[in-house]
Amino acid sequence: MKRAALPALAVCAMLVTASPAQARPPERSTLTQHRVVSDQGEACGFPVAWTINLTAGLTHFFDADGRLLREQAHIKEDNTVQNLATGKVVTEGPDSFTQTTHFDEAGNPTHYVVTGLAVNAGALKDVGRVVLVRDAEGRLDIAFAAGPHPLREATALGDALSAFCGILA
């Protein structure tokens, strides 16, 4: 009877001490970016400059093997757009949205989920939820949208600045 109890105790001990592989803890960082996106009239028929001032709180999530699964960015922006021909400036922001980027096993982005207020320029709003996927050529296509998304639609067509033409004319 004692001999049969020893293997059972050994198995119980292994079950108690063996733990499943744990995912690497999330990593957090902050990104601050200032950039200008501009053209010489291709988007609107007049030159446009979009000055972007962005701060993002980033969290990277990993699997048990240390592979990046997703990145969640809580983004805040205070921007301006300008008609460079007339000098008209429109405040674009404050914006506040979350962008979650999902990655495949090789670390390549597969799709993006954006939720919140991404453009806030007077009557021009890009707000709600949108899911973007990469096509075979690497361009972003809208797979799902709830709410108006003029910036995302313009970006999918190849020129984000064209979303601002109406408010800058």
Rank of each mutant, 00 (worst) to 15 (best):
L31R: 14
A43C: 05
V127C: 02
R134D: 03
S38M: 06
F164G: 02
P109A: 15
R24W: 15
P20H: 13
R134I: 04
F103E: 08
Q22H: 08
P148K: 12
Q82S: 10
D39E: 05
A49Q: 06
M1C: 05
A18D: 03
V16A: 14
A160M: 09
L117D: 04
V127Q: 11
D63I: 13
A169P: 08
K2L: 13
F103C: 07
I52A: 02
I52C: 00
V130A: 05
A118V: 04
R129N: 07
A5M: 14
L54M: 15
T17C: 15
F46D: 00
A64W: 10
T91W: 02
T30N: 12
P47E: 03
G41H: 10
L161A: 02
A121P: 14
G87M: 07
V127N: 06
A4R: 11
R134Q: 15
T80E: 06
T100Q: 05
H102I: 10
A145K: 13
A4Y: 03
R139G: 11
L117Q: 09
C44N: 03
A49K: 04
H34N: 15
G45H: 03
D141C: 03
A64Y: 11
T110M: 10
L15G: 14
A18H: 10
A73L: 08
G147P: 11
A43S: 12
P25I: 06
D95C: 13
A49V: 02
E92Y: 01
Q33E: 15
V16Q: 06
A73P: 04
L157W: 01
D65A: 13
A160S: 13
L161P: 02
R35M: 14
G122I: 10
Y112G: 02
N108W: 10
P26K: 00
K76T: 13
V90I: 11
K125P: 04
L117E: 06
H60P: 00
V131W: 00
S29E: 08
G138F: 12
F144N: 14
V130T: 11
A154M: 03
P148T: 14
S162D: 10
G116L: 06
L117T: 09
L157P: 01
A136C: 06
V48Q: 01
